[in-house]
Design a protein around this nucleic acid. Structure first.
Length: 171
DNA sequence: TGGAAGATCGGCT
DNA sequence: GCCGATCTTCCAA
């Protein structure tokens, strides 16, 4: 759930990827602590937001006990219908279907209005909240996307998505 | 100080 | 299926 002056946008996470560190070569934390990934080395329950490819933001949830730089990349969210959907759609540059509104990490950040200013935000007290909901019936695991450079780590099935959910990313 | 690559996306062929 | 947009970040020299 994301709260801002523009109103609240809420949704259900339907796709995510796990990044372990620092031994996971696909994780940003695998090359040591830098100004960009410093949040990953901090306590869990915080947002790690980074800018990629000159035009997109990706949002992660820092997890682990706080000693290991681990995080979960939020890749797709099914946005609640009604006001949430309307507000999210207003943020998008082009008119897109509800299915693809928050499909893919770049789109999730855009739909929820999350950028680098929210990097390091505490998810328990800030304008972005996570809450526990009913677990989906069927979850499938797939290899992670876009990490072919990570040798044997690229093959690990650490991308989790809700089976047959139309809101997941396509690539 | 320079250059290469990137946890992407959308449009075009 | 392929390619360009666009700029931050990191490493090497």
């Amino acid at each position: 759930m994301r709260e801002s002056a523009a109103g609240t946008v809420a949704g259900r996470i339907v796709e995510a990827e796990a990044y372990a560190g620092p031994e996971d070569l696909a994780a940003h934390s695998s090359r040591g602590r830098t100004p960009r990934n410093a949040v990953m080395f901090g306590p869990p329950g915080h947002l790690y937001v980074y800018f990629i490819y000159g035009m997109h933001y990706c949002i992660n949830v820092v997890c682990g006990p706080g000693v290991k730089p681990e995080a979960v990349l939020i890749r797709a969210v099914a946005i609640d219908e009604g006001e949430s959907l309307a507000r999210a759609r207003r943020r998008m540059p082009t008119d897109v279907s509800a299915k693809r509104l928050a499909a893919g990490p770049g789109n999730v950040a855009a739909a929820f209005g999350i950028d680098r200013s929210l990097n390091g935000t505490d998810l328990t007290s800030g304008p972005v909240h996570l809450s526990e909901g009913a677990a989906p019936d069927r979850i499938v695991a797939r290899p992670r996307v876009g990490v072919a450079y990570a040798a044997e780590w690229a093959a690990l099935p650490w991308r989790f998505l809700v089976a047959d959910d139309p809101h997941v990313s396509r690539r």
